[in-house]
Design a protein around this nucleic acid. Sequence first.
DNA 1: ACCTGAACACCGTTCAAGT
DNA 2: ACCTGAACACCGTTCAAGT
Lengths: 233, 233
Amino acid sequence: MAPQTPPPRRTPLNRDRVLHAAVALADRSGHEALSMRGLAQDLGVVPMALYKHVANKEQLLDGMVDVIVGEIEPPAAGAHWKNAVRGRILSARRALLRHPWASRVMESRPAPTPGVLGYLDSVIGAFRAGGLSADLTHHAMHALGSRVWGFTQDLFPAPPDDADAGEPAGLPGEMAARYPHIASIAAIAASRPHDGDSVVGGGCDDQFEFEFALDLLLDGIERLHRQGWTSAG
Amino acid sequence: MAPQTPPPRRTPLNRDRVLHAAVALADRSGHEALSMRGLAQDLGVVPMALYKHVANKEQLLDGMVDVIVGEIEPPAAGAHWKNAVRGRILSARRALLRHPWASRVMESRPAPTPGVLGYLDSVIGAFRAGGLSADLTHHAMHALGSRVWGFTQDLFPAPPDDADAGEPAGLPGEMAARYPHIASIAAIAASRPHDGDSVVGGGCDDQFEFEFALDLLLDGIERLHRQGWTSAG
DNA sequence: ACCTGAACACCGTTCAAGT
DNA sequence: ACCTGAACACCGTTCAAGT
């Protein structure tokens, strides 16, 4: 008799394999489908095995955030501060768009991870390198809010695909009657192409809307900077 | 023998009682403590009794959102469009600040409730009454994003209260060394008073920051309006 | 050192039954 | 008509045990 073959030895688990498997699972099945048990099954392992590599689910989510932050491209050197900030934010947006669950997970973290702090530090650094005061930069960061990550909370969720296509524009007739002002701008929204699935959280947070708002804020900040604005005066 | 007293008849459940009990429970114990089972216990009823009044937990959350939206004050008549929008948004902010869980629940809704649509319709109406085009109003609403509800996603969670008070300003020394740009603006943040618990999601999203960003956006929109801006040109 | 099995204290929700 | 009890299919996490 040949000696019993040992049980198949999988490549041993480590934190990185766990984190990347979690990202892959969330990419495939969405944020709400990400459970410790489901992740363990993906890795061919019993749920408890994960707890040797991440302390708990919160730490798993923190680790996933840093995986995504790691995908943001390094800053461009030598650009004007407005272009430097703009470029950094649009790169973050591209990373977040690759992982539709990422914005929601990001929002859910009670404390910033090292990766998050590093990215924020670099954005602040870009403002300061342009000569903006610490005061103005502080308020600029608050004004940008989640937009520094390249996403925004959307207010008009995308209507379901089976929405009545025979309607004049945007909204079904009953709703248009009840919410006339929404109907008036929904007609505009329906008449311009939105980029279908490159959407964070559904709706029409497309590239045009994002850059419109980003530039509105950056232009306003630039104007205050040139006026020598301070929060004291 | 006296006839057996019937079991105590509680005032019968209805949708409104369920919704208001849910709001009270979330106010008291936070969003994550809100479970169908816990809510049932609060109402002195078995969990399944709730399902006669709300179809499921999602519908419960939708109902809670509309309770909060109902607390927003009616619009002021006859104001300039910028003040009308501003007033509406600041009133929404006051309602949301009374229920710290509300912003997170709001963000989680996949489809707008009637109350949400009514409020958004009124804000859009305020823009249109000021003569802004449907086009510009549409982009303005997107640019405002969750700010129309009076809250913004915060990027710097409040440091724990036991943070080293002997540090020069804002950040512990080790962090200040690793993230110098954050440290430079955290010093500013630490030197101004923040309103302690009137905070949505923790951090320094205080009234000053909120109004700074709101006015930055409204001023930018006003400027575009006066220039006759259109997305086409 | 690394993984496992069984258990605990929870969830939202269903179904068939009670009054 | 309105509420109940028991059950189902899940969670994250613990503990003591296996190899």
